[in-house]
Structure formats: structure tokens, C-alpha cells
Amino acid sequence: MPQYTLNIDGAKRVVNARADEPLLYTLTDTLKMKGPKFGCGVAQCGTCTVLVDGAPVRACVTPVSSLGKKPIRTLDGLEKNGKPHPVQVAFVEEQAAQCGYCANGWIMHSVALLEKNPKAGEAQIRKGLAGVQCRCGTHIAILRAVKRAGETMAKA
């Protein structure tokens, strides 16, 4: 099996994987990470989202062999020096999870959106998050959380 050196949350991780193995399984099965999750496997829900070069990518359809040295950011690595990311703080404050299985997708998409543009308005947020699914119907709290995170990040 080929070996790959991935750049995950700022650390080099050496993994053995088949060239066509989607990154999701490398992260969850080999590296036992908990942020990205399997929801659909066909790029339609967002629960597996990671950021590659700062942009949201669906790990369930991204072959591990396609990543090279590109920086990969995950929910597992968002917390820095014991400090949660403002988006995570806002999700806790607004209680923006029911089962929370979908939270990874919403948070990673929001991080990508707000780090580029913390002043994103409601219309931009709605558009930026349009491809993420939540079965429990937590959208109302999620939108509140993303707006709150934007406010915090705009001040910082």
C-alpha cells in the first residue's frame, strides 16, 4: 500500500492508504479523528468537510493521493492552545446542535466563510452554507451561531 505524508492541522502525518481511498476514511479509520464524519459518501451533506488550502472540501470524495502537501484543517484541530475557535464558542453559546452529527459540516464551512469575511451578512451566510444538511432542523440556532461568531471575529 502506498505511503502518504499528509499535512493535517499543522502536523505531518504519515499514513498507508490505497491511492483511491477517500481522505475521510484515512482521517476516521486510520487516524481515529472525530471531527469529520461519514454522512453520505457522495458529497451531498457536508458532515465530512475539512478545509484544504482554506476552502471547504468534501473528504468523502477526495482521494488521499490528491492532496500532496496541501494544508488540511479539521474540526479536531480548530482549538488552538486550549482556546476554542470563535465559531465553536458561538455554537456552544447558541446551543446550535441537537444530535450534533452534522455540526462538523456547518462549523468548517462557517470557519472558511468567516475567516475570509467576518462581516458576511445573512444572505451570504445562507448562501455559503446552502450545501450543508441537518436532519434535526437545527438551522435556526445554527444561523444565530454563525452570525454571533462573525460579530466576534469582526471585532478581533
Binding site: G35, T74, L75, L78, F91, A97, N104
Partner: peptide
């Protein structure tokens, strides 16, 4: 439990 869920600990 929400903190665990959004901090990838759950």
C-alpha cells in the same frame, strides 16, 4: 454535551 459535539470530543 454540545461543547463535546462541536469540539470533536463526543
Amino acid at each position: 454535551d454540545i461543547a463535546d459535539k462541536v469540539m470533536a470530543r463526543e
